[in-house]
Design a protein around this nucleic acid. Structure first.
Lengths: 234, 234
DNA sequence: GAAAGAAACCTCACGTTGTAAGGTGAACAG
DNA sequence: CTGTTCACCTTACAACGTGAGGTTTCTTTC
């Protein structure tokens, strides 16, 4: 009713990019479940339905933020000195490793991204580019397409810099629950008790996510390297 | 109002188990997104709110169906001849492998389960028991708790018989999209084109999910075995 | 049998979600 | 001045999970 003149401020018009950036920021700050159309509109100083003028629906927004995240992955890879140059036969594994850890660094800043990625199994161009870079490195090491293909599947989620949940906050199991576990899962209980004691004040609660990630990654890369050598010998 | 006498049929009363079984069946048949309180109640011949008498909320139902699925995994493991007996130092890997592939067989019958598991990261007793069995096998092979711990993380999702999406229907990418990809992801495009041609009438569209799963699993098991030998030598 | 009490189920309603349909005001073209 | 187009808003709806409280059905006790 009122002349609400105060909001006639040179309001920068919405764009696809501004919406997606706001969506990413909102998810970073308040979590994925807080990313609703109304909340997003609110963050943009706009009504919910206005967003639909720039993006068809919420799925497009989810696809969009994943795309945006992997654009970030792309710049992360360029920043480091991991050019294609050192991707000879010997150095392919470290090169791939660095690419993957780079992606992981970005994804750690957007913990909601993994969730969106594999609940929507989105394939954005930026994502494809990331995979393509890794394929390129492997190809330059002389691996067959078949071996590369299997290897991508083997590495799985890890290509994108995560596996399972990132923000797992690997915290120690409550002692009460561990006692209960002793009765029907003695091996697991023993392991947990043992491992928790080894380094009581580790970086995280009781297991360092990054270490685990790299352990698994290296296991795979070693195995792939052995397959590559077998292939080269044939 | 009406005397609705027809429905006075000896209706078996709801129980937690009946609800969970119906939920699992419903998800099997119509997919996870079809598993709503109202639809579930309908399948049970009951109103939605009646379910709340037996289960506190929907999360409890999701936890419950995962539990139920892993009970199935437990019986699957017992059926096979993969007792602890052959879990000596040499045979630990095949034993673990069989346990994992057994879990996979079950999870393939419930494609929604992986989604629920890692979107809710549920830890049911039956799930814990499954992991415990694997820890037991590794322990009997003389591995340290530390190595076992790392190994579990390395295997990751695969412990539960899946990785990423199960019902991926790994079908060939549409040729149009592949052409477009050629411009900005040449390595990937080349690989896809190449691999698709190798065996045109494979079991699945163009890559066999089971083969990929086992490839990755074996890569990891081999690597772990080498770590175990290194540990034993020390 | 009847009456009391508990157990099992239902009705109604609310808040939240994504989004279809269509309205409103500003900028601009003729 | 008049229409068209763009950008945004208002209203509304169906589907979701679920709180509050009413109603039916079964069981127990006399």
């Amino acid at each position: 009713m009122g002349p609400k003149a105060a909001e006639a401020r040179t309001r920068t018009p919405l764009t696809r990019e501004r919406v997606l950036q706001a969506a990413s920021d909102l998810a970073d700050r308040d979590g994925l479940e807080a990313l609703t159309m109304r909340a997003l509109a609110d963050a943009l100083g706009v009504e919910a339905m206005s967003i639909y003028y720039h993006l068809p629906n919420k799925d497009a927004i989810l696809d969009g933020v994943v795309e945006l995240t992997f654009t970030e992955v792309g710049t992360e890879a360029h920043g480091r000195g991991t050019g294609r140059s050192q991707a000879d036969a010997a150095g392919w594994a470290p090169a791939v490793r660095e690419r993957i850890l780079g992606a992981r660094r970005v994804l750690l800043r957007h913990p909601w991204a993994p969730v969106v990625i594999d609940q929507r199994k989105s394939f954005s161009p930026a994502m494809v580019r990331h995979v393509d870079g890794i394929v390129g490195i492997m190809r330059e090491a002389g691996m067959s397409h078949d071996l590369i293909h299997h290897s991508l599947h083997a590495i799985g989620n890890r290509i994108y810099g995560y596996v399972q949940e990132l923000s797992d906050d690997g915290q120690a199991p409550p002692p009460g629950q561990l006692d209960e576990m002793q009765s029907f899962a003695p091996n697991l209980a023993a392991m947990l008790a043992d491992v928790a004691h080894v380094d009581p004040e580790s970086t995280l609660g009781w297991c360092d996510d990054q270490t685990e990630f790299e352990f698994g990654l290296d296991l795979l890369l070693e195995g792939i390297e052995r397959r590559r050598l077998a292939e080269a010998a044939a």
